[in-house]
Design a protein around this nucleic acid. Structure first.
Lengths: 190, 190
DNA sequence: CAAAAAACTTACTTATTAGTAAGTAACTCT
DNA sequence: AGAGTTACTTACTAATAAGTAAGTTTTTTG
């Protein structure tokens, strides 16, 4: 009867990510994922023992993708602004689908998570913040970007604008996100 | 046996607020509140028919408090920076207790909420944003504050910095929140 | 002081959740 | 072709969740 599907594991990750970004980590169940994929909930447990294993795998994915991006940007000739766009674009996409970034979503449920997840999400943040900081520092050094704070502080300001920007957009409208995004870029260009 | 307590309703609101800020809206139950207050879960249902009624009451509280603050600030002689501190201080307090602001918390669970709650949280945001915007505009007019964006845009930037700042602090440490807060004030003072 | 209202508890029900043990079908490798 | 492995389903359990109806006690009020 049921066609065997070699992609179920990847599909579970895709749907899980979508649910976290759209509903929040504590607002969906394995049954929800199963329903979406037309499998039984035991199938989800087969691929990921529990919800936190799924979350761990998801964060691992993010870390891998950002590490890949880091390598791609390493020796590329694109401008600092161009690099920054690579960090901003995902937020713009999230905004379009009334979703929020996984870090912001997890931050809300942070105190319900096991230490293993907390450590991994912390590692993801360090990775992304480090990349943004470095991009800002380079851009400033080359006279392309302008800001008065340290690169680290400026990275904190920008990323919090984006993260809360998509959250706010959900409630008060996408226009607010756009205002924030444009203001950020304008200020950096000086 | 059980002492009748005239404050139970207020206590439920207090604990509910605390739980939303610490664990997230979809991560606690009426049973959790009941346990904390040493009553039965039916007692919680007696005061608030359901979880969304509790949330509605909580948001109403916030709206009342901000309206009160608006009146207090209206004709007071404190500086614009002093007024802004009134908006910043609650975030600093939240950060101290590893909690996040209720708007950020609700933003994560936004797509699981009924329209009634969505409308009310939107009204709260409009109220707060309006107050911050006005404070910024006045401060700029009097030469006390310095920023290049419109007051509305600057208000968006500041509030998103604060909201995501406390979220980030939970994961990567309170120091990051402090960096953000100090940078904001420094920039506004010009 | 009697009646009514307020603030609960007791004792349920129904639905959802996470999770598991055992079985089955299909594919893979030798 | 047969043995093992993968990817599931069936069929449960135990715990938690929201919610409610009916009864009890305490306080207020006419």
């Amino acid at each position: 009867m049921s066609a065997r599907n070699p992609d179920t594991k990847a599909e579970i990750l895709r749907i899980g990510k979508q649910f976290i970004q759209f509903y929040g980590y504590n607002a969906f169940s394995y049954a929800d994922i199963a329903r979406e994929l037309n499998v039984k909930n035991a199938a989800v447990h087969y691929h990921f023992r529990g919800k936190e294993d799924l979350l761990m795998a998801l964060i691992d994915n993010y870390i891998e993708n950002y590490q890949l991006l880091a390598k791609q940007l390493q020796h590329s000739k694109i401008t600092a602004i161009g690099k920054l766009e690579k960090f901003i674009e995902p937020y713009s996409c999230l905004c379009e689908s009334d979703s929020i970034c996984i870090i912001g979503s997890i931050a809300s449920d942070y105190n319900t998570l096991p230490e293993s997840v907390k450590a991994k999400i912390s590692a993801l943040i360090d990775l992304v913040m480090g990349m943004v900081e470095q991009t800002l520092a380079e851009g400033k050094k080359h006279g392309e970007l302008h800001f008065s704070e340290t690169a680290r502080t400026q990275a904190l300001l920008i990323m919090t604008n984006l993260a809360a920007g998509v959250q706010l957009a959900r409630i008060s409208g996408k226009k607010d996100y756009t205002i924030i995004r444009k203001a950020l870029i304008k200020q950096l260009k000086g």
